[in-house]
Design a protein around this nucleic acid. Structure first.
Lengths: 338, 338
DNA sequence: ACAGCGCTGGAAAGCGCTTTCCCGCCACGC
DNA sequence: GCGTGGCGGGAAAGCGCTTTCCAGCGCTGT
């Protein structure tokens, strides 16, 4: 059994150079090291199987190679797609991503940020949907402040936040465009299965949708709020059914909710799209093969993750940057003419 | 703007105690500290917004609060479910999980493990499917060795590995039981859409399935290998169709592949289950609402993640432990009598 | 009364690395 | 020929913590 851990000091000794030289060779500082010493160090490091102690480096440099990623629920395809984008660019940059999940509890966001700060994470991307809960908000704001002050960068996806870089999907515009497309199909009576009212993502999509209906001179929709999940969609749809609303088209603010809603409708013998049309939002790749294919607003989820990671990694100015990504309405089999 | 960072030393000074005392209070060592000192330290820490420097702690303690999680593709619901389980228990234990993705390249696994070692991760769970590639295997084995020797624990899900804790799903047994159930439906001619032949998970499921058919005295299935993804399933199904095989039932070794296959079949006008029955494996929650509902073998994915994390976190003996979790055949609408 | 013990608090020695500073060396310019 | 830089190398001072070791103190037991 070899030593518990190979340290730089051992490598240096073995190679017959000083600690400083070894360090300079193995991490490429600004300083030059002569060819042969450099060679020797590299070789012994290789032989000994040296792996730098990331904690020690982080401590000495006062900055780690960690990038935070906080999501509500990694199981939700919306988040896992974003996560894929973030990890791809982080790993390409030689960084490790630490994944935090909030389980949809807003307080957790601040806690996680604090942990990330403890780790001196170089950056963090917040993919959670912003809530309107004041207390959680200000606690989070404080953490974000602390985090940046300590030299970390933070980017948000889909939630503008005090001076952080942000990638904002066109939630409002997408909702509006979707409404327009749906009214063009001839629908006049709409219902929307909204997310919890404190999530701005849900609210933006809803607001956009309403605006779109208004554009077309259509009466505002019945809206039923539910959890931002498959079950939430299911429950909301059940409630809708119970309400005897005569809507011909329902918009679920999320593909995942739409799936739940479709399940509920099917269960009740409502045919899609013959009896009722349904549309979602996000265009989750995993869900593209469902029957009937779900009409939705496509968001380039992975790309959004990549952009966010990109923002947060390239030092950038002190200005908070905002990248907008557009949603694209795609009408498929779940919506029919009326 | 406050100080760049609040250190333990500042807290100690402010509270009028020694560094040692402050440390003891703020992390709960074995040593006792009197009530009032303790109180004072806690209060000043609170006031100053002290957050311990995780790197420094890791360095001093020679062990960090990081847990590694290595998956192929976080976008794949199979992995994201496992990830959810792992993060849940890790976070409950006050640890942070660093997520590594291999993009299905076996070499990446070893690289990630090395990074994790650099971070002195306390443990890591390898959720990738084992490949049969010799070189990658031995490189990985070496990394696992190095990692454990350095004091880290490693657990694998679904791949027994040199003396690591493992949670093994009943791939073989599940495949076999599924085959039996399917033959009981009256099917006599089977096809299986296998994963890449070097993945043992795929091979085990296939082997079990073949055994099940043999049990029932049914001829071995046509097998077509494809990538372990939706597109792989799609392509394999297309190939199957082209081959003019007269199978009445196809088993895709993965739900995700089954989704792709179903898309292909539908596209070709093949009705499910009237013309052909299809079954998958995993019972991905996100896919449960598809129509027709997919027959499959249910695996408690999140629970598997939890178990793996549990194994790897509770120190355990030196013995490599193995936890088997059974798959449960669930027949739904995608398979019909023949 | 005193040795011995248990207990709390503090000084200080690391943990493995980075980086500043300094030193000696060489090439140059005057 | 000697001061001046520039340059490659090493010594050593941290980075922020943990933990050992020691000092002091109040007890108990004989």
């Amino acid at each position: 059994m070899s030593a518990r851990q190979v340290t730089l000091a051992e490598v240096a000794k073995q190679a017959g150079v000083s600690l400083a030289t070894a360090s300079r060779v193995l991490n490429g500082s600004t300083r030059q090291v002569s060819e042969d010493l450099s060679e020797r160090v590299l070789r012994t490091a290789e032989e000994l199987g040296y792996v730098p102690n990331a904690s020690a480096q982080a401590l000495a440099r006062n900055s780690s190679s960690l990038v935070g990623l906080v999501v509500h629920d990694i199981t939700d395809p919306y988040f896992s797609c974003i996560a894929a984008g973030v990890t791809r660019v982080a790993e390409a940059a030689g960084l490790s991503v630490v994944l935090g999940t909030t389980g949809r509890r807003p307080e957790r966001e601040a806690e996680l940020l604090s942990t990330l700060r403890a780790h001196r994470a170089r950056a963090v991307v917040l993919a959670g949907s912003r809530t309107t809960d004041r207390a959680a908000q200000s606690r989070l704001a404080a953490e974000i402040d602390a985090f940046s002050e300590q030299g970390g960068r933070v980017a948000c996806v889909s939630q503008a936040k005090l001076g952080t870089d942000t990638v904002v999907p066109g939630n409002r515009a997408g909702g509006r465009a979707l409404a327009r497309a749906l009214t063009e199909l001839g629908h006049k009576k709409f219902a929307v299965l909204g997310g919890p009212s404190e999530l701005v993502v849900a609210r933006d999509r809803l607001a956009g949708f309403k605006a779109g209906l208004a554009d077309a001179g259509i009466a505002p929709p019945v809206v039923i709020n539910g959890a931002f999940t498959r079950d939430g969609g299911y429950a909301a749809a059940m409630e809708l059914l119970a309400s005897k609303s005569r809507s011909t088209c329902v918009f679920a603010v999320t593909d995942v909710m739409a799936m739940g809603a479709m399940a509920a409708l099917r269960e009740r013998g409502v045919r899609i799209p013959e009896d009722i049309s349904i549309a979602g939002f996000d265009d989750i790749p995993t869900l593209r093969d469902t029957v009937p294919a779900l009409s939705t607003v496509r968001l380039p989820l992975e790309e959004m993750g990549e952009i966010a990671a990109g923002l947060v990694l390239d030092a950038g100015g002190d200005e908070a940057r905002t990248v907008r990504v557009a949603g694209e309405v795609v009408l498929r089999a779940s919506t029919a003419h009326n």
